[in-house]
């Protein structure tokens, strides 16, 4: 079921959490709302769910305005950051809850509920944990139970609020791949909130990057990563170095003085050499070199005293044979800079 958000605004006191948000989520897609805390992403999700109501604007499911419908009548599956499992019910009772509270005439029979719950337990790979209580499960297991509970009512839309936020790094990674597989299997329109760019880029079909109650960009992970619409998006998706300089005939010139436009360059788009090559280079002194991991990370200081982060492959690093406290020449690779002068206001904040 497609979701349309039209001109939704929401204020908490004088704080504007959402400012005239428009968003079109096609049916069957998995969409991430990505942004820093306070960007309004959770508020938007809760408004779609009906747990919060917008001050103005409308939410439509499949073209039908459901703004005034309560959460109970929206047929939305909601997964909470801290799971919100019913602590005095077993895993089985948790998953069955949504079916058991239905009015008698549309409530499935006892056997149907049992079959449905066991089908979901198989899906989340917790078949032999049915009689356990949430407190006896690990974080990852609890989150899977929360998902199964939301799916049990066959919702038209699945909404997940920081679904992996309360889990440790390794479980997070496993669970987000699992969520992606699950989504491919059940094909239900899903929206999840996250502040982790890797999570959003890896799992989602489309990413809405949010900042200060607005959507900065909405597009595929490749779109937002490679063609960021604003400097905020560029800055938020991955590490960047911030320079001042100018772009002439496709070549980037970094200024040592604070003049010219703001230029962002990702650490792996900085080329390092021992000899000066071309005219767009600047000098830097290497300080710390971290060789653990797939990329070598170098912290250096520019000739005008600003810190700069550089990343390169292990092969390149081996060929160069860099050591700390060495003067090198750094060149931005041509196509890889992002000029912020078209969005001066946003650039000032970042």
């Amino acid at each position: 079921m497609s979701i349309s958000v039209r001109g939704v605004s929401k204020k908490f006191g004088s704080f504007s959490a959402l400012d005239r948000i428009d968003l079109e989520i096609p049916a069957g897609e998995l969409v991430a709302l990505l942004g820093p805390s306070g960007s309004g992403k959770t508020t938007l999700l809760r408004i779609i769910a009906g747990l919060e109501f917008a001050d103005s604007g409308a939410v439509e499911f499949e073209g039908q305005d459901i703004s005034s419908r309560s959460a109970r009548d929206r047929r939305v599956g909601f997964v909470f950051q801290h799971f919100a499992l019913f602590r005095y019910m077993t895993v089985f009772e948790n998953i069955a809850f949504g079916l058991r509270v239905r009015p008698r005439r549309i409530r499935p029979s006892r056997e149907e509920i049992r079959a449905k719950v066991h089908e979901l337990l198989r899906l989340i790979q917790l078949e032999n944990q049915a009689q356990r209580y949430p407190s006896q499960l690990s974080g990852g297991q609890r989150q899977r139970v929360a998902l199964a509970r939301a799916l049990a009512v066959e919702p038209s839309v699945l909404l997940l609020d920081e679904p992996f936020g309360a889990l440790d790094a390794k479980v997070r990674l496993e669970l987000r791949r699992w969520l992606r597989d699950l989504h491919d299997k059940v094909q239900i329109t899903s929206v999840f909130v996250t502040h982790d760019q890797d999570e959003a880029l890896e799992v989602a079909d489309r990413v809405a990057v949010m900042n200060e109650g607005r959507i900065e960009q909405f597009g595929t992970p490749a779109d937002v990563y490679h063609s960021p619409a604003t400097s905020f998006v560029y800055n938020f998706l991955g590490n960047v170095n911030l320079f001042r300089g100018r772009v002439e005939n496709g070549a980037t010139f970094i200024h040592s003085s604070p003049t010219g436009s703001i230029i962002f360059v990702r650490p792996h788009f900085l080329d390092v050499s021992r000899q000066p090559n071309g005219s767009s280079h600047f000098r830097a002194v290497t300080k710390h070199i971290h060789t653990a991991g797939p990329l070598v990370k170098i912290e250096a200081v520019t000739e005008w005293g600003a810190p700069v982060h550089i990343e390169m492959s292990q092969e390149r690093f081996g060929a160069l044979g860099l050591v700390p406290d060495e003067t090198v020449f750094v060149t931005p690779k041509e196509s890889a800079v992002f000029r912020a002068d078209s969005h001066p206001a946003a650039a000032d904040k970042s």
């Binding site: 769910a49 909601f78 005095y88 809850f97 509270v101």
Partner: peptide, 25 residues
């Protein structure tokens, strides 16, 4: 309010939410 919100989004009425979630807790 998390558990109550979960119950409501699963389709429980106010009374069911109170009886099955709020009161046992």
């Amino acid at each position: 309010n998390d558990e109550e919100e979960a119950a409501v989004s699963l389709g429980a009425s106010g009374w069911q939410t109170f009886w099955h979630v709020t009161l046992p807790n």
